[in-house]
């Protein structure tokens, strides 16, 4: 297999995200449209029907460092969410506890991370009481170039 370098791989993912129709339950794009290193990505997940997350929009931050896609992106919920695998103080997602993502492979994409998070929302163990709508985690994420 020919190995696609990080930057061109992320450009492909960006194009797919730009082309995607709104029919989906999630969308994503670059957090900073001028960041030619394509480091930070921002995404929205629509809470699935018939779950405690229904009718809510969740903002997610993903960070793809120099070693992506060999190494998984770091993922944080910006919108507060009570769900297993999400650190309740910082919103950071522990991908090793998310089904389908626990063994990262370079073929995985940002879109697949979002799909896995959305799937997690539909699981039994995620049927938990939720914080107020639209509340966000107030933290400065480590090595974030621009604190939120």
């Amino acid at each position: 297999m020919v190995e696609v370098p990080r930057n061109f791989r992320l450009l492909e993912e960006l194009e797919q995200g730009e082309k995607a129709t709104s029919a989906g339950y999630c969308s994503y794009g670059l957090a900073d449209l001028e960041d030619s290193l394509m480091y930070n990505w921002t995404a929205l997940i629509l809470g699935p029907l018939n779950t405690p997350f229904e009718n809510r929009l969740y903002q997610v931050l993903l960070r793809c460092d120099e070693n992506y896609p060999k190494v998984a992106p770091k993922v944080w919920f910006i919108t507060q969410i009570n769900m297993p695998g999400v650190n309740q103080k910082t919103g950071e997602v522990d991908l090793s506890t998310i089904e389908y993502m626990n063994k990262w492979k370079p073929s995985y994409t940002i879109h697949m991370v979002l799909e896995a998070l959305s799937e997690k929302m539909t699981r039994k163990e995620s049927r938990l009481p939720q914080p107020d709508k639209n509340s966000t985690y107030k933290v400065i994420r480590p090595d974030s170039k621009k604190p939120e």
Binding site: N7, L11, L14, L30, L33, S36, M38
Partner: peptide, 17 residues
């Protein structure tokens, strides 16, 4: 696949090069 890494001011080159 080609892109500029240097910032360019050009109508046919976007912010990501």
């Amino acid at each position: 696949k080609v892109r500029f890494l240097t910032k360019m001011y050009h109508p046919n080159i976007d912010k990501l090069g």
